[in-house]
Every structure is written in C-alpha cells, then in structure tokens.
C-alpha cells in the first residue's frame, strides 16, 4: 500500500494510479480484481442515477435550494454563452448530484456526501465529451479513490475537522487526478492536477446556512468541479505544481486544525453567520417540520 502521493506516482511508473489502487485493493482484501471492478461499476451507476434524479428539478424540503440543475440543463441545451466542451456539463452534473443529496436521495459519497457532486460532475461530463466507456470511467474512480485515501489518512476529509477545503477541496483533487488520467495524462500529471486543485481551495470554511448541506454546498460542488477541470487542463498542458502534492495535503490539514470551530460545520460563522444565514437558521431550527418558503 502507498502512504503518500509520491509513493503512488513511483509505484505507478509508466502505468496508472488507477492500476496501483486496484492492485492494492486486491492485495489488502484478497478479493479478485473482477469483483472489485464490478463493485466500483455499481458505485458509478449510483452516481449516474443521482445525476439524473437531480436533473429533474428537485426542491429541498427546507426551501433553501433546488431546481438549479434543471435551469443549467436548459441553458446548456440552448447553447451556453461563455464556455463549451465538458466544462458547463461538469458544473451542471455537480449541481444535479448535490441537489439529489440535499433532497435525501441515494448518493455515493466521494469522499463525503457534502462533496458528492464534484467527482461525478467532472467524470460524467468528461465521459460524454471524450466518448469514454463506463469501464474507463470505472477505472478513473480508482484513481480518484487513491488520491482520496492518501488525503483521508494523512489529513482529513470531514468539514467538522478541516472545513470545506477537506471536503470539496479533497473531492476536487480526486476529480482533477482522475480526469487527467482519463484524458491520457501520466500519473505524475495526475498528481500535479490534484496538487493544483487542492491548492486553489485551501482555507475554504464549512459554513452552511442552518447547518444544512445546501447553501453554499451545492454551488461549491460546482466550483470544485470547475476548479478540477482547470487544474487538469493545466496539468495536461505540462504545468507542474511548485509545491508537491503531499506538502499541499499536509498544508490543508494544518490550516484545518487552525481554523476556528465556528468555521467547521457548526452553522455559526462564515456564510451561516450572515444576517441571511441567521434568519434561515431561526426559521428552520424553530420549526420541527420545515415548510418550503415562497
């Protein structure tokens, strides 16, 4: 088993991070590779179902969010005005999966539920754009999982411990590495993509309104997906991260433990502490069964 990103890249050699992760999983569990791949293919189908569910235009019980994935879908179908290719769809699917999550739908945490839109957003959009098979996307999920395992073991992946940088930041690093490999990048390029994506999200607090995984979580997932795409494009162009990925991960951890508890999933500081955030909190926390607001 690899302990950090540099070992992961070293073990990949001329091969892929996905391949190293699959080998390591087979070795540690004693299970056949086919069985492991088949379980990962199931996770991909859960991701696809949650994206489709979100595209229906779900509204959360709280009244705080919903319907945005549908708006994006219509906008893209008419021809998005600024960007093209996989980019607007990555944003669209990230929002869709997170709206399904806020609606208490069935999702695949990656690495957490709050950040579950980033990875499917990036990979499903890239799948359509590049014309990749489900098998190829399933393998890309192993690459994402490898990066996530290193971050989870060497830093943290919960907003309560490390803020949003630990959730959406980690998801963005995972997605950046996975989509880099999917697009034909090397293991080293994937590691650079992960480092760049995580660097761009350092310091991000976990500050959702009324403690719900809705605002700003859903749009932050879209931001994480966009950031992962930007990082992957840079890495594929041959750009390197000046600070190695393992040092970025350690930095994320140190920033997390120094972050005030009010910014770590307690619905107190950051956006949760704005007049709007406080208003929603008193509205939703006093009511036992929140009603949608006009």
């Amino acid at each position: 088993m690899f302990r950090n990103i540099s070992e992961l890249v070293e073990q990949a050699g001329d091969g892929s991070i996905s391949g190293v992760m699959l080998e390591a999983e087979a070795e540690s569990t004693g299970k056949a590779k086919e069985e492991i791949i088949s379980r990962m293919a199931d996770q991909l189908q859960v991701m696809k179902r949650s994206a489709r569910e979100g595209l229906q235009g779900l509204r959360a019980r709280s009244g705080l969010c919903g319907g945005d994935a549908l708006l994006l879908d219509r906008y893209i179908q008419k021809g998005s005005r600024l960007t093209g290719g996989a980019f607007p769809r990555a944003v669209n699917y990230a929002v869709a999966v997170n709206e399904a999550n806020a609606h208490m739908g069935i999702i695949c945490a990656s690495p957490t539920a709050g950040a579950c839109g980033v990875l499917p957003g990036v990979l499903l959009a890239a799948q359509e754009h590049l014309g990749k098979s489900d098998e190829a996307i399933t393998m890309a999920l192993f690459c994402a999982g490898a990066v996530g395992l290193v971050i989870a073991n060497n830093a943290c992946i919960s907003g309560a411990q490390g803020g949003c940088q630990a959730e959406v930041g980690s998801a963005a690093a995972m997605a950046a590495a996975a989509v880099t490999e999917l697009a034909g990048g090397t293991a080293e390029q994937a590691a650079n993509a992960a480092a760049i994506a995580l660097k761009n999200m350092l310091g991000l607090p976990c500050d959702p309104l009324a403690g719900l995984v809705e605002v700003p979580c859903i749009k932050r997932n879209a931001g994480g997906a966009a950031n992962a795409m930007a990082a992957a494009e840079m890495a594929l162009a041959g750009i390197k991260s000046m600070v190695p990925c393992d040092e970025v991960i350690e930095t994320m951890y140190r920033i997390g433990i120094n972050m005030s508890p009010s910014l770590r999933e307690t619905a107190q500081g950051g956006l949760a502490g704005t007049p709007t955030g406080r208003r929603w909190k008193s509205l939703l926390w006093e009511n036992e069964s929140p009603q949608p607001q006009p």
Binding site: A102, M104, I106, I107, T112, C116, S158, L212
Partner: peptide, 8 residues
C-alpha cells in the same frame, strides 16, 4: 452508497 445529505 447512502441516503443524503451528510456522510459524517
């Protein structure tokens, strides 16, 4: 694979 909204 779980019911939303939060893994933790």
């Amino acid at each position: 694979v779980m019911l939303g909204p939060s893994s933790s």
